[in-house]
Simulated scan of single mutants.
Amino acid sequence: MADMQEWTFLTNHAHVLLCVVRDPQARLRDIAEQVGITERAAQRIMADLVEAGYLEREREGRRNRYRLHAELSLRHPMDRDTAIGELMAMLISPRNGPDQAL
C-alpha cells in the first residue's frame, strides 16, 4: 500500500488557490509555508493563476489583494463543465458531519 505522504489529490496550484480564496491578502511566504513549497514556487504558481485569468491582482499599499474569477471553467477537458468557484466552494465548505453520507 502506498504511503499517503507520497501523493495528494490536489495539485500545488489548487492548494495555493485555496489559500488565496481563504485569505485574499495572504503573503506569498505564508502561502508557501501552508502548501509546503518554496516561496519562489508559490510566486510562479500565483503568476500562472493570474496569467490564466483565475486570479486578479490588485495592489493595496504594500500588499496585494487577489480576487477569484469564480466563473472560469477548470482547465482539464474532463472538468470544463465545472467552474473554479464551484470547486473552491466545495473545498472550503464545512465538512460533512459523521451522520451525513458523501
Rank of each mutant, 00 (worst) to 15 (best):
I31Q: 06
G85E: 04
V20C: 13
L74S: 07
D30M: 09
E86L: 11
L10Y: 14
N64R: 12
E58Q: 04
I84N: 07
V20Q: 07
T82I: 15
Y66L: 09
D81K: 14
P77E: 12
M4S: 08
D79N: 13
Q5Y: 03
P24Q: 04
A52P: 01
R44G: 00
P24H: 10
G53K: 14
P77Q: 13
M46F: 03
I31F: 05
D79V: 03
Y66P: 05
R57Y: 04
S93I: 02
T82F: 15
E71I: 00
L72W: 15
T11F: 13
M4N: 10
R62W: 01
L18T: 07
M90V: 02
H13R: 15
L17M: 05
D99M: 08
G53Q: 13
L74I: 03
Q43L: 01
R22Y: 09
R57L: 06
I84Y: 08
P77R: 15
H13Y: 03
E58C: 00
A26R: 02
Y54F: 15
G97K: 09
E33Y: 09
R22M: 15
D30K: 05
T8Y: 06
R67G: 04
D3V: 02
V16P: 13
Q100N: 06
D23R: 10
Y66F: 11
R80A: 05
G61P: 05
I92R: 14
Q25E: 02
D30Y: 05
L28S: 13
I84Q: 13
Q34F: 04
H13W: 04
M90K: 14
D79K: 08
M4V: 05
N96L: 14
H76P: 00
V16S: 09
A70S: 14
T8L: 06
L87V: 08
R57A: 12
A14R: 11
L102N: 08
W7N: 01
L102M: 12
E58F: 02
D3G: 06
V35F: 15
Q5F: 02
T38Q: 03
F9P: 00
P94A: 13
A52G: 05
R62G: 01
Q43W: 00
E33F: 11
Q5M: 03
G61K: 06
R27D: 06
A42E: 01
R75W: 14
L74E: 09
V21D: 07
G97N: 06
R29V: 07
A70Y: 03
R75T: 14
T8M: 10
Q100Y: 01
R63C: 00
G85N: 07
G97S: 07
W7T: 03
F9H: 02
P24A: 06
L28N: 12
M4T: 05
P24C: 05
R65P: 07
E39T: 12
E51G: 08
A41D: 00
M1D: 10
A83L: 08
V35Q: 14
L49R: 05
F9Y: 01
Q100I: 02
G36P: 03
E56Y: 08
N12W: 05
M90G: 07
L18C: 10
M78S: 13
A42Q: 01
L91Q: 08
N96D: 06
A101G: 12
A101W: 13
D3I: 02
E51L: 07
T11P: 09
A83M: 13
M88R: 04
M78H: 12
